[in-house]
């Protein structure tokens, strides 16, 4: 079990990262990553939705008839996203005005449906929850890194407007890395998102090739023993 959990985290964060390897959920991924803070906001919301949808789907896996599983999953995911949307409007209003149209977009993030179908509906609750957290965290990490990259190159700042997400103390997180008038428009516009993601995918592949996957046998020891 120990090794299995670790494997799930490795899958989500690196080997089978939804943003860099599965290339799922590109619509929200490319749309919101203009700044690191926007990426973080959508990342947190995605982790929550992904973990809860995996949890609910796994709990109901014996109950949902296979013929209607897809509409059932869609129904569950859409409800969870609506809950997140309402809660954010109630308690993080300023953030919801910036992320506003992107929260409903989580519904279109196929990572969530993919995990529900491929993993949560076939595995027990604890594993499904870990998978949801790992995949969500992996996706959020890509959002933040791509957002930070585009923000630094496009605006010359990092973590600008962090107080909208994290409260007033976070104003000190904002740093200006490049001189005041710096700005490379390309990085902020949609092409910059594609180029940035392409570079990240390339870097990921390079690093994976340099460090081959650990031998399968180590993970399988507990099962064969």
């Amino acid at each position: 079990m120990e090794g299995e959990t670790r494997n799930l985290w490795q899958q989500g964060l690196w080997r089978n990262n939804p943003g860099l390897v599965q290339l799922l959920g590109l619509c929200p991924l490319l749309a919101v990553t203009g700044t690191a803070v926007n990426g973080l906001g959508l990342g947190l919301a995605t982790i929550f939705v992904l973990a809860s949808s995996n949890l609910v789907v796994s709990m109901l896996r014996g109950f949902i008839a296979p013929e209607v599983r897809i509409p059932a999953f869609v129904l569950i995911i859409a409800s969870l996203v609506t809950v997140v949307d309402l809660v954010m409007q109630a308690w993080f209003f300023t953030l919801s005005t910036t992320l506003g149209i992107f929260i409903p977009l989580i519904v279109t993030n196929c990572t969530i449906l993919a995990r529900a179908e491929a993993f949560a509906s076939r595995n027990p609750v604890p594993k499904a929850l870990v998978d949801g957290l790992a995949q969500g965290l992996g996706f959020a990490a890509v959002l933040v890194i791509l957002g930070a990259l585009r923000e630094v190159i496009g605006h010359g700042t990092l973590m600008a407007d962090a107080h909208l997400l994290l409260g007033d103390w976070a104003r000190m997180l904002e740093v200006r890395l490049l001189p005041g008038e710096w700005g490379l428009l390309l990085a902020i516009l949609p092409p910059g998102a594609f180029i940035g993601l392409g570079l990240l995918v390339a870097a990921h592949r390079r690093l994976s090739a340099a460090r081959p996957e650990p031998a399968r046998s180590t993970n399988q020891v507990p099962q064969t023993a």
Binding site: V68, I76, A78, T82, V83, L86, V87, Q89, A90
Partner: peptide, 25 residues
């Protein structure tokens, strides 16, 4: 029946959350 049940539960949850957040929003 399964799908209908899930739909009913989802609607109930959403109604409750809406009620709880409406005034604050």
């Amino acid at each position: 029946v399964t799908l209908a049940l899930i739909g009913i539960v989802a609607a109930a949850v959403l109604a409750a959350v809406n009620l709880a957040t409406r005034d604050r929003i």
